[in-house]
Simulated scan of single mutants.
Amino acid sequence: MNHCSSNTNQRPGKALELQIAQARKTGLADAVKRTQDLIAEYSLTQSDVFGRGTVRSNKGTSVPPKYRDPSTGQTWTGRGKPPRWIQGQDRARFVL
């Protein structure tokens, strides 16, 4: 009868994978500890480390019009799809 340890029944590389996982876990723990120490040392706040937490976007902000149709009074900001009254024409004629 063959007296094999339980490790020989595992697929090759399994021990290495376990070592890598343990090293990563230890490395992450060390990184967290160093980060906590730096935060305490410099009295950093969450916004110091991660910013304000909001990303500003231009979506929904009002932009003043750049162009006006003299015949109807309609305006256009110059953003997005051009309205029919300005398409294919020299825009200089419509500048406010």
Rank of each mutant, 00 (worst) to 15 (best):
R24M: 08
G78P: 00
T75M: 02
P65L: 04
K33E: 15
T54C: 13
K66Y: 15
K33Y: 00
T61I: 11
G27N: 10
Q46M: 01
P65V: 07
T26M: 09
R68N: 09
P70F: 09
V49S: 05
P64M: 04
A29I: 14
S43D: 08
G53N: 11
I39V: 12
G27S: 12
Q74Y: 07
D48S: 15
G60Y: 08
R52L: 01
Y42R: 15
R11E: 01
T61K: 12
T26Y: 02
S71D: 07
G13A: 02
L16I: 02
G73I: 06
T35G: 04
Q46K: 11
L28E: 01
G80Y: 07
T54Q: 14
T26C: 07
N58G: 14
S43W: 00
R79P: 03
A15H: 09
Q22P: 00
R79I: 12
T54L: 11
L16E: 01
D69M: 00
K81T: 05
R52I: 15
G27E: 10
Q74T: 08
L44S: 14
D30T: 15
K25M: 10
T77K: 06
T26D: 10
G80C: 06
D69I: 10
V55W: 03
L18W: 10
T72P: 04
L16S: 07
K66T: 15
A29W: 10
E17Y: 03
R11P: 09
G60I: 09
G80R: 05
A15W: 08
D30N: 12
G60N: 12
D48T: 03
T61Y: 04
G27I: 13
E17S: 02
G13H: 07
Q19R: 12
F50V: 13
W76A: 07
D48Q: 13
G27Q: 12
R68V: 10
R11V: 04
A21P: 03
K66E: 10
P12T: 01
T77A: 03
R68L: 04
G13Q: 14
T77S: 15
L18E: 05
R79W: 01
N58S: 06
V55C: 03
L44N: 04
G80F: 12
T75Q: 01
K25P: 02
L44D: 08
G27P: 08
T35K: 06
V32H: 02
G78Q: 05
A40C: 02
D30A: 10
L18G: 01
S47D: 14
T77G: 03
T77P: 02
